[in-house]
Design a protein around this nucleic acid. Sequence first.
DNA 1: TAATCTAACAACGA
DNA 2: CTCGTTGTTAGATT
Lengths: 272, 272
Amino acid sequence: MPELPEITVICRQMNKEILGKQVYEIRVNQPKCLNMPVKAFAKIIVGSRTRRVSSKGKWLFLKLDSNYYLLMNLGMGANLLYFKPDGWVPEKFQFKLTFTDSSGFTIRFFWFGYIHLVHQKELGNHRLTANLGVAPLDGEFTKGFLQRLLAGRRGRIKPLLLDQKNIAGIGNVYIQDILFNARIHPNRVASTLSEREVGKLHEATKTVLQRSIEKGGLAYEMDFYGQKGNFKSEDFQVGYKTGKPCPACSNPIEKIRTGQTASYICSRCQRS
Amino acid sequence: MPELPEITVICRQMNKEILGKQVYEIRVNQPKCLNMPVKAFAKIIVGSRTRRVSSKGKWLFLKLDSNYYLLMNLGMGANLLYFKPDGWVPEKFQFKLTFTDSSGFTIRFFWFGYIHLVHQKELGNHRLTANLGVAPLDGEFTKGFLQRLLAGRRGRIKPLLLDQKNIAGIGNVYIQDILFNARIHPNRVASTLSEREVGKLHEATKTVLQRSIEKGGLAYEMDFYGQKGNFKSEDFQVGYKTGKPCPACSNPIEKIRTGQTASYICSRCQRS
DNA sequence: TAATCTAACAACGA
DNA sequence: CTCGTTGTTAGATT
């Protein structure tokens, strides 16, 4: 389940590696992840050249010279791997795209990925990407934005932050340390956060994500070249650290159930 | 519960009557419908002049020369009534706005109305209006748009059409005849509609709403001047006509429960 | 009973 | 029954 940092890293690497290449063929082992029949998909994409890769939240946007976009969401437990003309090609994949120079990439997801082909004119109608919220490392993501987002919200802070329509890119991994750094319990009602807490939350969101990007993403995820990131278990403060001492107060970290998701918290530092 | 036709009519009348007037005072009997404390609200609005009134869906946008907008949603069972300098002023209201010339308007709703004050720069962050869908009488509302909206949707057609984020302005009143005119059962799964059915639905949506606007809205709702509209019970084809014969096949019209809402259908013309 | 927001559930495979 | 995410439905609100 790559989140914003992993996707950002892959995006940069794709831009270095595959720009201007021409699509030679595609192979699809899981047609359900496409937004049209395989044949129609191939007809559109084969022969076009790659223009530029961008990302928003957990989505990758590969622009083609035909003004189509290849939109990719890796779902959970996925990898998106480059292969060189003369290199090893992964055998297991749901989707494989080969360029005319025999390089290409494979996508494999454990669950719930999307590979959609959408014309530029229809981007605004693409339900999965058109309504993505603010990118947390963009200038738009200000303290004021966060305050307005939370104002009057009767729901809990955690699901609100995880909702991609509000902020795009945070998942159940990084949210743990974001909330801990801001000293906010995941079950707090959004509108009850003080202005100071909103400020800390804003800062923590940027810091946690930015730090992982600098480390190349999570150590248990692979980048475009199949390399693992450097954001390791010890880089987490509370995430996935059940029973370990809180880095701030040494209280044992607890794993609790919050709504539908698991949360790792220090119940002394993060009061409900 | 005014829907698009009633709001459109009120919008036109407000533009005729109150442009350029200066706000003298406000009275608020239900502070919860505002988006800020009454004092802050009054401080912003008192003294400013009205610029222009527009509408989208069930919302009215009153632009002020201070670049603030007064956003009004009448919720259900509501009225928005003009009063003249020397005329009768309604005694019961949740909100009353008086201009310096002693004219003004009152708003009364039975349930769930909103009166928000938002700066132009913040309009994009106003959750209740920023995500409104397409206006069904605008050029944007094409058959193609409707097809894309329905494509791949596993949900029922009725709640999808009533969701203001998809199409702005249809409520549980006009939806009845819209679905009947298209001969579509409210419980049909959206993605199962044929292209022909989508075309009929598109046409029916525009026709039903347009016809009501021409008649000045519903006969049981009041316009800005307190006048009732001319869209009467006999203008409905199946809406609120339980037991009456279907205008197409004479089968008795049934009132059924569909999800959370009531639906009036001809079960012979609208097959599930 | 209205309209809208929020919480909960269903779905997808292994 | 777990995982994570999205879409849909059911419940709560004044």
